[in-house]
C-alpha cells in the first residue's frame, strides 16, 4: 500500500469517528460531543490535506482525475466548506448532516480503483486544477445547502404540524436554515459559473472547442439554470423557506447525477475513463 492510500484510509477512519461523534452528540443531546466532533473533523481535514498532497506527489497531477481521486477531492472540499461555515453559524447539528455525506463520498472513493492514472496530455494543463477546484468547491457549497434544506424540511414539518419530537429541540431555527440556503447560493453560484467558464477554456485548449454538448457539460448547464432560477426567485419574487429548500435538494441531486451518473452511465469525453484510461 502506498503512502497516499494509507493516508486516505486514515482520513476515512477519522471522518468515521467524527460522524459517529456528531450523530451520538445529536441523539443524546450532548453539546460537548459536538465540540469534540468538530475538533476530530478538523484533525481529519488536516490529514486529508496531507493525503491529497501525497497523491499529488505520487501522480504528478491534481488529484481529481480518477473516480477515487474525485470522490476524495469532493469530500475534502465538503469538509473544508463545512468548517468554514461553522465559523459563522456554529451549528453542530449541521455537522451531523454534512459529515455523514462526506463519509459516504469517502467510502465510495475507497471502493473505486486506486491505480495511478496513465499520463494524459489533456490533464497536463493549468486550467485543469483551476476547473476542478472551482467546480468541487461549488459542489461542496451546494451540498451544504442541500443538507440545510433537508434540515429545513424536517423542522418546518414539525413547526407546521405542531408535532414536537426530539429533533425539534435539536434543529436550529427555520430562519437560520433558510439563511444558510441563501448564503450557499450566493457563494455556490459564482463558484459554479466560474467552474463552467474555466472548464470551457480548458476544453478549448484540450479538445479544441469551448463547448461540445457532451453529457456532462449539458448536465452542468441544466444544474446551472436550476440554481440560477432559484437565485432569481429568491431575489425578486421572494422564494424562500420550503420552496428554496426543495430547490436546493433537487439541485444537489441533479448535480450528483451530473458528477456520477454521467460518468458511470452515459459516457462522453468528460469521464474518468477517458481521463485515466481505466
Amino acid at each position: 500500500m502506498t503512502l497516499d492510500i494509507l493516508l486516505f484510509k486514515a482520513t476515512l477512519l477519522v471522518y468515521f469517528i467524527a460522524t459517529l461523534l456528531y450523530l451520538v452528540g445529536v441523539i443524546t443531546r450532548r453539546e460537548q460531543l459536538g465540540k469534540i466532533a468538530k475538533w476530530v473533523l478538523i484533525g481529519g481535514f488536516a490529514v486529508h490535506c496531507v493525503t491529497l498532497g501525497a497523491r499529488w506527489l505520487a501522480t504528478g497531477l491534481t488529484p481529481a482525475a480518477s473516480l477515487y481521486e474525485a470522490l476524495s477531492f469532493f469530500a475534502w472540499a465538503l469538509v473544508g466548506t463545512y468548517l468554514l461555515f461553522d465559523l459563522r453559524y456554529r451549528i453542530a447539528v449541521l455537522g451531523a448532516f454534512v459529515c455523514p455525506l462526506a463519509l459516504v463520498l469517502m467510502i465510495g472513493g475507497s471502493a473505486a480503483p486506486k491505480q495511478i492514472p496513465a499520463a494524459n496530455p489533456v490533464l497536463d494543463s493549468w486550467w485543469f486544477p483551476v476547473h476542478v477546484t472551482l467546480a468541487f468547491l461549488g459542489y461542496a457549497v451546494f451540498a451544504v445547502a442541500a443538507m440545510a434544506g433537508v434540515m429545513y424540511l424536517l423542522q418546518e414539518r414539525r413547526v407546521k404540524a405542531k408535532k414536537f419530537s426530539g429533533l425539534f429541540y435539536r434543529l436550529p431555527s427555520l430562519d437560520t436554515l433558510d439563511s444558510i440556503n441563501y448564503k450557499c447560493l450566493t457563494f455556490g453560484f459564482p463558484l459554479m459559473t466560474m467552474g463552467i467558464i474555466s472548464g470551457a477554456i480548458w476544453g478549448n485548449s484540450a479538445w479544441g472547442g469551448y463547448w461540445r454538448w457532451d453529457p456532462k457539460e449539458t448536465g452542468a448547464l441544466v444544474v446551472w439554470f436550476l440554481y440560477a432560477a432559484l437565485l432569481h426567485g429568491r431575489l425578486t419574487v421572494g422564494w424562500r423557506g420550503r420552496r428554496a429548500a426543495l430547490f436546493a435538494i433537487l439541485g444537489f441531486l441533479c448535480l450528483l447525477f451530473t458528477f456520477l451518473g454521467v460518468n458511470l452511465l452515459l459516457g462522453g469525453q468528460h469521464t474518468f475513463k477517458s481521463f485515466t484510461g481505466q
Binding site: V159, F168, P172, S173, D175
Partner: peptide, 9 residues
C-alpha cells in the same frame, strides 16, 4: 420560544 424556532432572533 416557538418564535425563536421560526425567526432565530
Amino acid at each position: 420560544e416557538l418564535a425563536r424556532k421560526i425567526f432565530d432572533r
